[in-house]
């Protein structure tokens, strides 16, 4: 058999190179900075958005405070889902985000929770007794859930009763870890963290300032815009947020409201 001609080999090589080299550099995926408490929900939202044909999303987790510091220092994030409204508002004031893009995407709900099935009664009266050694709470000075728990205890006149038994975590995640590991008998945590295990008492929303979590757009990345629009308006997205234990803005169908 004749050896293939040089031309043919050259043609093959060109074809191979052309086939391998990307025609265009692919657009970078949208980078969404997400407050750690919303991590699991954000992953579920991303999967739903991608399977509905949305563009690729990279979720970047951190505490709201450190993500805000990073955005201020020029982090290449396209949108920010914070755990509060203060940091997004500050970004708008700093002209790093537009006011029109800001919206409340979820409302955190506080729960008194124990991994033990029979420790927390449906009215939360366990706090008035001696049935526990340690009660975990997030730092009221820095963590919104801690401030909410503190406001509830104060309003219910329980602060003095439990003060000596409080163990303070740096964030609501740490308060959850104290409680889930059994080092604290019960704790004030987020509904989104406990998903129906153990025993719990959902703290009434009117006993503390609302735990609103706001989102802002930081660039005009089309996939980031589409993702925020999805979170804000899509019924499936809102169902995912509610299923993870968050309340929704302007919404009468919150799970606990229905139960009551």
């Amino acid at each position: 058999m004749r050896a293939p001609s040089l031309h043919f080999i050259a043609l093959l090589a060109v074809a191979a190179i052309a086939g391998c080299a990307p025609n265009d550099a692919p657009a970078p995926p949208a980078r969404i900075a997400v407050a750690a408490n919303f991590a699991a929900t954000a992953s579920a939202l991303r999967d739903a958005h991608e399977s509905a044909g949305g563009g690729r999303i990279d979720v970047i987790l951190g505490s709201t405070g450190s993500l805000h510091a990073q955005i201020t220092a020029g982090a290449p994030f396209d949108a920010f889902l914070a755990a509060d409204t203060a940091r997004p508002d500050r970004l708008v004031a700093e002209h790093l985000a537009t006011a029109e893009s800001r919206f409340v995407y979820a409302i955190g709900r506080l729960v008194l929770w124990s991994p033990h099935i029979d420790l927390v009664d449906p009215a939360g009266d366990v706090l008035r007794g001696e049935g526990f050694t340690h009660l975990a709470i997030a730092d009221p000075k820095t963590a919104p859930y801690g401030a909410a728990a503190h406001a509830y205890l104060e309003g219910a006149g329980l602060l003095g009763t439990v003060a000596a038994r409080l163990v303070t975590g740096q964030s609501v995640a740490q308060a959850y870890q104290y409680t889930a590991s059994g080092n604290a008998d019960l704790g004030f945590v987020a509904v989104s963290q406990v998903a129906g295990r153990g025993s719990h008492f959902i703290i009434p929303d009117d006993s503390h300032a609302p735990l609103e979590q706001a989102a802002v757009l930081l660039t005009d990345h089309p996939d980031a815009q589409a993702f925020l629009h999805f979170i804000r308006h899509d019924p499936d997205a809102r169902a995912i947020i509610a299923a993870h234990g968050y309340g929704l803005p302007n919404d009468e169908t919150r799970p606990d409201a229905r139960r009551r």
């Binding site: 980078r31 750690a36 991590a39 699991a40 992953s43 990279d58 979720v59 970047i60 987790l61 951190g62 450190s66 510091a69 990073q70 982090a75 290449p76 994030f77 995640a173």
Partner: peptide
Amino acid sequence: VLMLGGSLPGETRVASIAIYQHVESMD
């Protein structure tokens, strides 16, 4: 790295940050 990196995949997302993200996502 958590403060300085921004967890960009392939650039600044190191193994320890990936572990942190898995734990926070309950994976």
